[in-house]
C-alpha cells in the first residue's frame, strides 16, 4: 500500500524544483510517476480539467496533488482491452468511481463465479453526486471483474465479462 504522506511529500518537493517528473518503482511492484506536465500515459487518462479525487480511492481524500500527479498501481490500473471470445461485456455508461458494494463494509453485489440474472444490479458508479446502479442486460456467470472497488472508471470501460453459457 502506498503511503499517501510520502506521495504528498514527493509532490511538494517536485513542485518547488526545476525537475519535471519523477518515477519510482518499489520491489513490491508498485510504481509511482509524478509529472508537472499533464500526460496521458499508461491506462489512466486524466480529463481536463483534472478531476483529482476521481483519480484516487476515497482513502486518498486529504491528498493535495499538483498538476499532472498520477498514482499508477501496476496491478490495479484499469485497462481497456479488446473483447474476449464468447464473453459478453458490461461497460460503464459514464465517468465516475466504481463501487463493488452498496456501502462500505457490505457484501459485493457480484464476484467472479456469481450467477447473475438479467436486471440484476452488478455495481454502483458514483458520478456527479449520484449513485448509479448498473444492471446486467443478460443472464450468465461473472467470469471477470475488471475494476477494483473505489477506483475511477472511464466511459465505455469494461466493468465485467459475463459468460452467457456459464
Amino acid at each position: 500500500m502506498i503511503d499517501l504522506r510520502y506521495v504528498k511529500k514527493l509532490i511538494e518537493m517536485l513542485d518547488g524544483s526545476s525537475v519535471d517528473s519523477v518515477e519510482i518503482s518499489t520491489d513490491k511492484g508498485m510504481k509511482i510517476r509524478i509529472s508537472k506536465t499533464p500526460q496521458h500515459r499508461g491506462a489512466v487518462q486524466i480529463p481536463t480539467p483534472v478531476q483529482v479525487p476521481a483519480l484516487m480511492p476515497p482513502a486518498a481524500g486529504r491528498l493535495t496533488p499538483a498538476d499532472g500527479a498520477v498514482v499508477i498501481p501496476d496491478a490495479e490500473a484499469p485497462r481497456i482491452e479488446p473483447p474476449k471470445s464468447n464473453l459478453l461485456e458490461v461497460k460503464s455508461p459514464m465517468v465516475g468511481t466504481y463501487y463493488a458494494q452498496a456501502e462500505p463494509g457490505s457484501k459485493p453485489y457480484v464476484t467472479v463465479g456469481t450467477r447473475i440474472a438479467k436486471r440484476q444490479v452488478l455495481c454502483i458508479i458514483e458520478a456527479m453526486k449520484i449513485m448509479n446502479e448498473i444492471e446486467s442486460e443478460f443472464d450468465g456467470v461473472v467470469k471477470e471483474v475488471c475494476v477494483q472497488d473505489a477506483h475511477p472508471v472511464e466511459y465505455g470501460q469494461v466493468l465485467f465479462r459475463i459468460d452467457p453459457n456459464g
Binding site: D15, P49, V50, Q51, V52, P53, A54, P58, G61, T64, P65, A66, D67, G96, T97, E126, A127, M128, K129
Partner: peptide, 19 residues
C-alpha cells in the same frame, strides 16, 4: 454550472465531482 465543487488550492482552482 455542471455541479462540480470548486476548491482553491495552492496549485490553483480544482473541480471535484465526487466525494
Amino acid at each position: 454550472t455542471d455541479g462540480a465543487l470548486l476548491v482553491d488550492t495552492p496549485w490553483g482552482e480544482r473541480r471535484v465531482l465526487n466525494g
